[in-house]
């Protein structure tokens, strides 16, 4: 009896002392409140070593758009049974800026709709051979970059709908000015980042605008689209992403020497004189 009285007493003292701590704990708990949302998707990759799976999931209303992204799976016992292609239901649990999956249940299996992510293509550096690729130009003619061996090629990436004057229009205007210099042995290639929209006829119309309507200009300036865009853009570490009908992208200009190797490259920092000098020097080799 005495003992239990003592317990009650110490509990009371403890409670008084602990009240500020409890209050603080409640605030912390409130700030890091867990959120839970049901997820339905398909496993694309399983990485047991990092306890992660890559899931292509449906929209999670009020929380996240449909997307493919990696998630940590809380319970590692899930890993032996999870396979790429598994259709799953799970709970996305989040606290603060961390998210993970709980209650993962496999509801079926199907061939993954999208191919598994390929490793990013290797980025090349000056002196490396520029990756050869097949393209279709403004006249619908199929060609390869290697067909231009023996010429100094200035290559860049554009898309015809680009509304930002300091991006694609600036690049195409610069190429037009350089082409007008008539540097012997030079060739220009503008690769579309928007092959879905930039067909041969669209590219031809676009190109003509930068050649004052003179189709002879296409003799040393190709406007192309390629199914190897990812490889070519990746080689130059170009980033591009479609967003609401436009393409957000970085800027890259590559100078490919007569030997097919990358001679020089520029990002957003370049000027016309520098390009002209480098192109003329490479063409004169």
């Amino acid at each position: 009896m005495r003992r239990s009285g003592l317990l009650v007493c110490s509990f009371k003292i403890g409670l008084v002392k602990l009240l500020p701590l409890l209050f603080f704990a409640l605030i912390v708990a409130g700030c890091t409140k867990q959120i839970r949302h049901p997820l339905r998707g398909q496993v694309l990759e399983v990485h047991a070593e990092s306890a992660q799976i890559i899931v292509q999931h449906e929209e999670i209303p009020g929380f996240m758009a449909a997307m493919t992204m990696p998630y940590v799976v809380k319970d590692p016992s899930n890993f032996p049974r999870l396979k790429p292609g598994d259709l799953i239901n799970a709970q996305v649990v989040g606290s603060g800026d961390k998210f993970w999956l709980e209650s993962v249940s496999v509801t079926g299996h199907a061939e993954a709709e999208k191919p598994l992510r390929e490793p990013p293509p290797p980025v090349i550096k000056v002196g490396d051979v520029f990756p050869d690729f097949e393209f279709t130009n403004q006249d619908g003619k199929v060609g390869r970059l290697s067909d231009l061996k023996g010429k100094a090629v200035l290559l860049t990436f554009i898309y015809t709908r680009c509304p930002m004057p300091n991006f694609c229009p600036r690049l195409s205007s610069a190429f037009a000015k350089l082409q007008a210099k008539q540097i012997q042995g030079s060739h220009f290639v503008s690769v579309s980042m928007d092959p879905k929209y930039d067909s041969s006829s669209v590219l031809r119309k676009y190109g003509l605008a930068y050649m004052n309507g003179k189709a002879e200009g296409f003799a040393n300036w190709d406007f192309v689209f390629t199914k190897d865009l990812r490889k070519v853009a990746g080689a130059m570490d170009l980033e591009y992403e479609e967003d609401s009908g436009q393409i957000g992208h970085t800027m890259v200009i590559a100078l490919i020497g007569k030997n097919g190797k990358l001679a020089k490259d520029w990002g957003s920092q370049w000027n016309l004189e520098e390009l002209e000098q480098a192109l003329a020097s490479e063409a004169a080799r």
Partner: peptide, 10 residues
């Protein structure tokens, strides 16, 4: 038109 891009999709 000319060098003005198409805004048809935006």
């Amino acid at each position: 038109i000319n060098t003005m891009p198409s805004f048809g999709t935006t």
